[in-house]
Each structure stands twice: as C-alpha cells, then as structure tokens.
C-alpha cells in the first residue's frame, strides 16, 4: 500500500514569490526572514522523499464559478495547466504545468465515493494559486505528479468544520488504501484570520490576531475537539470575511490525525499571519 510520509498545512500568500525576488533594495523588511522560514519549511517535505503530492486547495473563482459550484472536487487529468491571467496580473505568479497521476486520482475518487464523499470531478482542470503557492514554497522544482483536490471555502453555504475534518480523515484512508509502493505527501493550504474586500483588509496585522494565536496552538496540539467546539461559520466570519480558508487547515488535521504537529512556524506579516505546519505519521521515522 502507499505510504503517507508527511502532511503539510500552511497559509498560501500569493505575494511570496514577488516579495522575495524583487530587487533587494525594493524588498519589504521581512523578506529575508520570510524566505528563510519558507526554505526551512521546504526541508520538512524534502526529507521525506515523496513520489506523489496530494494537494488540497480552493479555487478563487478562476475555473469554478457560481453557475456550477461543487463543494468538493478532484482533478483527474494527465497534466494540469496553472496560473490564470488575473493571477499573473495581480500577484506576478508565472504559469506552470503540473504532471498529474490519473491512476491515483481515479483510485482516490472511487475510494472517497465509497466513503460517502460524493465528489465532483474535472478532466480539464486549470490550477490556481491555492495549489501553485505551495508548489512555489515547498516544491519549487515542480518535479512530482499531483492529485489536486478543491474545496469550497468561498461560496456559501459551505460544508461544516466537522465535514472538512471528516473529509481529511477520508482522504487519509484513501491514501493508505492506494495499492502502490509510492510515498505520498499531502499538502493543503488555506488561511488564518483574513479579510478581503472589506473594512478590515490590509491592516498591520490580520483582522483577528487573537484567533490566529489560538488557531496555531490548536493545530500545534492537534486539538480537533477544541477547534470543533470553538469554530463555526459565524465565528470565522467575525474573525474576517475570508477566514473560512481555515477550513482547509481543519481538513489537513484530519489527514494527519488528531496529533501534535512535528513542525510549527509562523510569521506575522502585514495584513495576515503566515503559519506552517508539518505532521509525520508516527509509524514513519521521518
């Protein structure tokens, strides 16, 4: 069976590449520290020598729109174009082509259906920055095939936090059941407190620094009970109108299981708290 070798959950900041590659005299003061933290985080994946990446993100109205809006979707294609025109325009993210793994996508899709997660699927999926940002940060050589999974964190009504956690558990089971000798890493991105297009956007900190500190502690300790007792759609909206990206962290904790993280780091940037977590399965001496 396939072996899950690492679970990574992080924020995806679309300006990382631009912020750390512009001429040094124009860079923000935290750029060097940010780059150091990202490179250290990258190593938590590299040391596990993965063969395939299961990548969890959320389309930001790039391919998916309100005329046809799935809650959960899996990509099933031999390869995936990435980065839309408006992401190049706004964030300076280049175009990529990611290799797919149709066999594993097909297996995951059937297995998740068998676990009562009725996924939508796409045979022609163009990937957006929710999946390209982590390629840029933790696997910039883009040398591994991916199985992309999208969740709806954007267009209400959204599935519950508990449903996101249970989906993470189901994704873990599907990876564990995949008949292959491949080493699989699961990588998901989302947000802590975040405001976009509202009165609390682009402040000195994220819109709710107290939530950010608390969320990091919950994830550090793998405390799913505390998360489910304290986080719902209303509480996330109070912490910032785009805070529902935290649902993907809950999903990733489901993939890892309710255990303390093996690697935790964060960085307080203008308007957002960046956070980086890695879990190693306990049976793997990674």
């Amino acid at each position: 069976m396939a072996q899950l070798v690492a679970t990574l959950a992080s924020t995806h900041h679309p300006f990382y590449l631009k912020a750390t590659t512009m001429p040094p005299e124009q860079q923000m003061p935290q750029a060097a520290e940010w780059k150091r933290k990202i490179e250290a985080y990258r190593e938590t994946l590299a040391r596990t020598k993965p063969d395939i990446l299961v990548m969890i993100g959320s389309d930001h109205f790039h391919q998916i729109f309100l005329d046809n809006c799935p809650q959960f979707l899996i990509g099933k294609a031999p390869r995936y174009d990435a980065t839309f025109y408006n992401e190049e325009r706004e964030f300076g993210i280049p175009k990529y082509v990611l290799e797919g793994d149709e066999d594993m996508s097909g297996f995951m899709h059937q297995n998740l259906m068998d676990q009562d997660f009725d996924f939508a699927f796409s045979n022609e999926l163009k990937i957006d920055h929710s999946i390209i940002c982590p390629i840029i940060t933790v696997r910039p050589d883009n040398d591994l095939p991916v199985v992309p999974i999208y969740t709806n964190i954007f267009a209400p009504p959204l599935p519950s936090p508990k449903r996101f956690y249970n989906l993470g558990r189901a994704i873990r089971k599907a990876i564990d059941a995949y008949p292959s000798d491949k080493r699989v890493a699961a990588i998901g991105t989302g947000h802590l407190s975040l405001e976009l297009g509202g009165p609390r956007q682009f402040m000195e900190t994220g819109p709710d620094p107290e939530f950010d500190r608390q969320a990091i502690e919950w994830l550090r300790n793998g405390d799913i009970d505390a998360i489910l007792a304290n986080v719902d759609h209303e509480s996330m909206a109070k912490s910032g109108n785009a805070t529902h990206g935290f649902l993907n962290f809950i999903l990733m904790l489901g993939v890892a299981g309710p255990e303390g993280a093996d690697y935790v780091d964060n960085l307080d940037l203008f308007h957002t708290m960046e956070a980086y977590f890695t879990w190693y399965p306990k049976e793997t001496a990674a």
């Binding site: 930001h60 109205f61 408006n86 706004e90 954007f154 267009a155 976009l196 297009g197 509202g198 109108n241």
Partner: peptide
C-alpha cells in the same frame, strides 16, 4: 457582491 471578485477587479 462577492468580496473577492469586488476586490480583485478594482485592484486590477
């Protein structure tokens, strides 16, 4: 109107 679309278009 959706906050993300309303922001990203006018940033553009």
């Amino acid at each position: 109107a959706h906050f993300f679309l309303n922001l990203t278009l006018f940033i553009g």
